[in-house]
Write a protein that binds this DNA or RNA. Structure first.
Lengths: 307, 307
DNA sequence: CGACGTCCATGCCGTCAGGTTATCGATGCG
DNA sequence: CGCATCGATAACCTGACGGCATGGACGTCG
């Protein structure tokens, strides 16, 4: 009796949304594909998992039984694979670190330099992640630690220490009328189209749209991008504006894109994150210590404070 | 990070055998297919799981880590699916019973009759299994209970009560020289080709070849069959002889096939088996009670005694 | 009351992963 | 030196999965 864990994830999404169409969006597949997969799971088990009706998919009793047990099964599989990867890296003396765009910017080199001084027999591999995976590989166990912008989706499952706090600015097309000002009140941007992260990155996308600081007005989306280059391109094209950490002005300067300070929007924070399983891993903890020292952060700065 | 549980099973088989070719046989796939699958698992994880050498596949440290955790993950998945099926049947008031060929022969009707008298609102579904699945669907959770010939592979994972004990006879081609005798000493059959169950049914196959009662001589295999009809056909064809429960003479009489008592071979036992998860299921326990009553078995007859 | 929106199912098609057979390269052994 | 063993590779076939377009049932609103 074999199943692809993908099928179980699909099933849980549908069970959770109680709606095929919305679940399909969340899973980034088409509705018919999901419909077929669910049906296949049902025939494979010989069990009706949902009762279909004009207003959605409701779990049957059997479906509820599966919904109750599938998460544990998925977790067990995930855990097995993650631990396998972690073991391989431990054996090879390789520390993989994920990062998102310019997460730790200037500090990155200093962090790596410190780490190699402490652990000369280890090798650090930096792996840039696309914005469609804001955990930069932590969730899949592809990295041992990650340098991230906070908040990030699923942050509750990981340990986080804050390293840097910096104001958020706005990136504008150079020709944009507001570009003439030295500082821009955030309210002036409410009506602007924004270049956003892909849907499905949830709170992370919302954070960079400052969705919670717009007095309830929904943001306008001008474009959706996945990588720094596309993002710059979209802004230069005039598809929209975007909030960005102040340091982006140094790291992502480009003709056609202008950066300006913004008044009235919360700052951005950079953190180092690691999976709970690495709490006792001295190498990962050394890396975390290097992050804290390299950025001059007090050792006690936890992420929980005022997210 | 999705995996098909099949991949994990494949991996565990290779880890266990430390040999691709033998693992492939055990899994009933070709060696190249298995080779590719293992390689794919490795690339998907980005981790070497085995070191290949001229004399087999040896686990790496990472491979050992996976081998340690995969069984639990597989068990969690299996459990989720099995419980789902069981729940569906409970809701529908359906009891599925697997059986192997003529396992409980005459008693079957009596068992079902008793059960329907006790549980008039329930419906019993009998499902005949092929010999390539000697647990008759118990292992996959496809049935709530099964009527089986003992011993069967994996019997240790299930509860079993013995119902019937009957001598084993031999089924011969009608024209076979030995068919003239009223009773045949088992030694006289040692040299005969046998019609056997598929390899991969392990101890079950061996039991019906009486491999342990041949004084060390290996059995000769004349044909391999999967179902009663093929089995009868093979014997009538003269492909070989086969041990069979005495009752087969009544249930599987056919021109060209003769049944004779055998002296010097242990008897066959029929049992009812159920998964431990159903220990507390009153419906399954009622069914078990019906089995015991219908066959006049004392309630205390456990399977463990003198297997 | 009919047009429309919502929601799931179906049909058709392109792509790719998984399986099979046949064969090769490397290694150890008689 | 030929042979057996073991894993990798090549060529091919089938079927599963995904996408798009569309259909059918049901509720809602003008």
């Amino acid at each position: 009796m074999d199943v692809d864990t993908r099928l179980l994830r699909y099933f849980l999404a549908v069970a959770d949304e109680a709606n095929l169409t919305r679940a399909a969006e969340r899973l980034f597949v088409s509705q018919p594909a999901l419909s077929k997969q669910i049906k296949q799971l049902e025939t494979q088990l010989g069990v009706r998992l949902f009762t279909r009706s004009h207003d959605g998919m409701a779990l049957t009793d059997a479906g509820r039984a599966l919904a109750a047990r599938a998460p544990a099964a998925l977790a067990a599989c995930d855990n097995a694979l993650r631990e396998t990867k972690a073991t391989a890296r431990r054996v090879d003396h390789v520390l993989r670190v994920g990062f998102l765009a310019n997460a730790a910017n200037e500090a990155t080199q200093e962090i790596v330099a410190r780490f190699t001084r402490i652990r000369p027999d280890w090798h650090v591999t930096m792996r840039q992640a696309s914005w469609s995976d804001p955990t930069a590989g932590l969730a899949d166990g592809d990295v041992d630690a990650a340098l991230l912008r906070l908040p990030f989706p699923g942050s509750s499952g990981f340990r986080v220490r804050v390293l840097i706090t910096e104001p958020r600015w706005v990136a504008l097309p150079a020709a944009h009328p507001l570009a003439v000002h030295d500082e821009i009140p955030f309210e002036d941007l409410w009506g602007e189209p924004f270049v956003a992260a892909p849907a499905g990155t949830g709170p992370w996308r919302d954070y960079w749209l400052a969705a919670g600081e717009r007095d309830g007005r929904p943001p306008r989306i001008g474009a959706v991008t996945d990588q720094p280059d596309d993002w710059l391109q979209a802004i230069a094209n005039g598809d929209g504006v975007a909030l960005a950490p102040a340091s982006a002005a140094r790291f992502y300067a480009r003709p056609g894109v202008t950066y300006r300070p913004v008044r009235g929007v919360s700052p951005s924070r950079v953190g180092v994150a690691w999976p709970p399983a690495a709490d006792r891993d001295p190498v990962v903890q050394d890396f975390v210590a290097c992050c804290l020292h390299a950025t001059g952060s007090p050792r006690s700065t936890h992420a929980g404070e005022g997210l």
